[in-house]
Structure formats: structure tokens, C-alpha cells
Simulated scan of single mutants.
Amino acid sequence: MKPLKAFTIPFVGLKEGKHHFEYDIEQSFFEYFEYEEFNDSNIKVNLVLNKKTTLLELNFKISGTVNVNCDLTNEPYHQSIENELDLVVKFGDEYNDDNIDILIIPHGEYEINVQQYIYELIVLGVPNKLIHPGVEDGTLDSEILKKLEELSPKLTEDQNNKEDIDPRWNTLKKLLTDK
């Protein structure tokens, strides 16, 4: 997968200190990764790169909304997300991203691509179970919910009050009382 140029930061020409980068993430970003869980997205990424003599500190902050389908009703809604990541980039003999918080890149590198970190930060910021807010507070008017209500089994008062006990259990209960 070829890296997107907009997310490549050439750090070799930057002075020591903090540098701010902002990205607006839209649906085309996720199409690049072939991620089709979002209907639409509007996410802001604030990246602060703190360049020091021997390392780089990256602080990612994302906030925004993604349009997703509810897991219960399949109704689309806007899910707000916020997430944050601190990453330390060190220089070493070879590339190593085994540690979540530390990235080691070879000494000769002059730029870093942050698209994968932004992608993972957004995807991991979305809750595992997506429930439309209207389902939780009961205000969602959906055809699916109406159909589920219509097809759900109805319990009458007679069924609730009458205990259907198999007569064989009564015989077994006698064994307990006949001690």
C-alpha cells in the first residue's frame, strides 16, 4: 500500500521544538484503507510533533463524528468519537514497531508517515456496540422496531400466573418430602 503524501511529515528540516499539524479526515481516507464500516466521516486530527535532539514525540488527538449503522436497527446515525495517542519515535539500526508507544526508525530516515496511526486511532475510538441514541431513550421511530414489537411473543396474565409444571416433577418432589 503506497503511503498518502499528505500524511508524510519530513522532520529533518524542522527546528527543535513543537510543530502543529492538522488533518481533516473524510470518507476517502477510509476508502484508501478499504474500510467500509463508516457511511460518512468528519474527523479533525491535531498532531503535535515535539522534535528533540535524539527523538521525536508525537501527540495525536482526534475528535469528530462518523456516520454508522446501528447494530440493533440498522438505522444510520452520527457517533461522536474522541481518542488520543502519545508516540515516541527513536532512531536505531532497523525499523521496529513492536511496542505500541515506541517506534524505532533507521538512522538515515528523514520523514515519517502517520496515516496508519491516525487510521487505527479513529477505528479504535468507535465503540464496539453501536446503538442509536433513539433506541436507548425510546424516541426512534423505525419500521424495524415496529416489526420486532409486532412479532415479539405476547404474554397474557393467565400465562404469567399459571405455572405449567410437568406432573413428573410432582412425583419427584414426593421423594424429597418422604425422607
Rank of each mutant, 00 (worst) to 15 (best):
I105V: 14
D93K: 14
D97L: 03
Y95L: 15
L176P: 04
Y77N: 01
I118P: 00
S41T: 14
F11R: 03
V135G: 02
I112F: 10
Y35E: 07
L140Q: 00
G13Y: 14
T73Q: 07
E36Q: 12
I105H: 06
K162F: 05
N69Y: 14
K162A: 05
I104R: 09
D141Y: 07
E136I: 12
N113G: 13
E84Y: 06
P3M: 11
L175V: 07
K147G: 06
L148G: 00
K15Q: 12
E109I: 05
E94K: 09
I9M: 12
V45Y: 10
F30H: 08
V66S: 02
I104S: 10
R168V: 13
H132N: 04
G17D: 07
E82D: 13
D98H: 14
F33V: 05
D178S: 13
T53W: 08
E84L: 03
N128H: 07
S41N: 07
V88I: 14
F30N: 09
L175M: 11
T53I: 11
L151G: 07
Y35K: 05
D24M: 13
L140I: 01
K2P: 06
S28C: 02
H107C: 05
L72P: 02
N59V: 01
Y77H: 04
L175P: 01
I105D: 03
D158W: 11
E57W: 00
L85F: 15
K129Y: 00
N59Y: 02
G125C: 01
I62A: 00
N161A: 11
F11N: 02
L87Y: 04
K2V: 06
K18A: 03
L155P: 04
P106Q: 15
E109Q: 06
H20S: 11
V126A: 04
L140H: 00
N74Y: 06
K147H: 13
Q116D: 13
S28Y: 08
L151K: 10
S63I: 00
I43G: 02
L49R: 00
E94I: 04
Y77S: 03
Y119D: 05
I104K: 09
H132Q: 01
Q79L: 04
I131V: 10
D97E: 08
L130Y: 12
E34I: 09
I118T: 01
L155Y: 13
V114E: 12
K51C: 03
I100W: 09
Y110K: 14
I102K: 05
D86R: 12
E120R: 13
K154S: 08
L172V: 09
F29S: 00
I43V: 14
H78Y: 15
K129T: 00
H20P: 10
P153E: 11
P153M: 09
E111F: 11
S142M: 04
I102L: 13
D137C: 00
P106C: 10
K173A: 09
L47Y: 04
T65E: 06
M1T: 05
K129I: 00
K162I: 08
P127W: 09
N42H: 15
T73P: 05
G17F: 06
K51E: 03
S152W: 11
K5S: 14
K18E: 07
